[in-house]
């Protein structure tokens, strides 16, 4: 037990060191585009973490996660559009985003989470489609497919500030969600993933827990949407597109399902790859179609490395540690015998 706690702290330290390195990054380098890229990684890292709560921790496949992302982006954008872009309305916008996401995820969850995995996946795909259609048709508020530009509070016009805010939010969510997944509630979620029927017969109300996790996940995703809007200062219907969900899916699977670092690693990989491989399209046109590469990696990952990067590393580490421990035990036994 002692050993376990010590190791937890060790990994926490590693994460904190990385976070503080990222903290000083904007003061070390001035490349605007690279900073924007890293910011996108934070935002999609948050989004992918929220997706992993469903996919990796509870074993729910949702194809409609983009709807919460879009709800976040549109709530804040519309609040700023109708009012002055001040810090007060930022808070109002965030509250509205969180509230809406919570309500929608609650209602959707109550109605659909009792369905089997196939049906749930399809239904969420369709519901996200409905949101996309609604955003396109409700032109007076959403500006239709063209979207609209908005001004943000002064504070966020400075790239460094925005960068730091995104980083802080990501770090907070990372540790918060780690706490959440390590809590008794998180353990029940993992039990549902491993064996739903058994969890149910042990007396847990599975639907109840699934709804809770979908609300948490929806709220976190909506915050990612808010940050996304703040970073782009523009919103259009593409925030509801299936591609957004697919991105989260790729990030989670490649980075590592069932871990919280995994989605962030995945987000970094995909955003960087997207950035660089698109640049390479001058060299050869195949790089324009970088998604093929990722699709192939993704398929191979699902078949051969279902744990992704982070999961595989963790497993290796755990194995090594176990070996070391075994060796130690053998040695001490030898000593005793000697």
């Amino acid at each position: 037990m002692q050993q376990l706690r010590l190791n937890f702290e060790k990994s926490t330290w590693i994460y904190l060191v990385i976070a503080s390195l990222l903290f000083i990054l904007p003061f070390m380098m001035s490349g605007r585009s690279i900073m924007f890229l890293v910011m996108q990684i934070f935002i999609f890292g948050i989004f992918a973490m929220s997706y992993d709560l469903l996919l990796g921790y509870t074993g729910i496949v949702s194809f409609g996660h983009a709807m919460f992302f879009g709800i976040g982006a549109y709530s804040i954008a519309i609040v700023f559009d109708l009012n002055e872009p001040t810090m007060f309305y930022l808070i109002v916008g965030v509250l509205i985003a969180v509230l809406l996401a919570a309500i929608v995820s609650f209602v959707v969850g109550i109605l659909t989470l009792r369905l089997k995995s196939h049906f749930y996946a399809m239904l969420t795909l369709a519901l996200a489609g409905l949101f996309l259609v609604a955003a396109e048709k409700w032109r007076s508020v959403t500006g239709g497919a063209d979207g609209f530009t908005i001004s943000v509070p002064e504070f966020f016009k400075d790239r460094t500030n925005l960068y730091l805010v995104c980083l802080i939010v990501m770090v907070l969510f990372f540790f918060g969600l780690r706490r959440f997944t390590n809590s008794p509630l998180g353990r029940v979620l993992m039990a549902i993933r491993e064996n739903e029927g058994r969890t149910e017969s042990l007396g847990y109300k599975v639907l109840h827990y699934k709804v809770i996790v979908s609300v948490v996940s929806g709220v976190v995703a909506s915050i990612a949407g808010v940050l996304y809007m703040l970073s782009l200062r523009f919103v259009d219907t593409s925030v509801f597109a299936t591609e957004v969900t697919l991105d989260a899916l790729l990030m989670t699977i490649i980075g590592g399902v069932g871990t919280l670092v995994g989605p962030i690693i995945g987000a970094a990989l995909i955003e960087f790859a997207h950035h660089w491989l698109s640049d390479l399209s001058d060299v050869h046109w195949i790089f324009e179609r970088w998604i093929i590469l990722f699709g192939a990696v993704y398929i191979l990952a699902v078949i051969f490395f279902p744990k992704g990067i982070a999961g595989t590393i963790q497993e290796l580490y755990r194995k090594k540690r176990k070996k070391r421990q075994d060796n130690k035990e053998i040695k001490s036994e030898d000593k005793m015998a000697g």
Binding site: L55, G59, V61, F63, K116, S117, H118, A121, L246, L249, I253, I286, R289, I291, I292, F294, G295, A296, Y298, I299, V302, I303, P306
Partner: peptide
């Protein structure tokens, strides 16, 4: 064939395949 019997993996893998198939069209 590798994912018979595992629903979550089936959903994930066929979706990935969908991505690859529609991008390959463009290639």
């Amino acid at each position: 064939r590798p994912v018979y019997g595992n629903h979550v993996q089936q959903i994930l893998i066929t979706l990935g395949l969908m991505l690859v198939l529609s991008e390959l069209i463009k290639v």
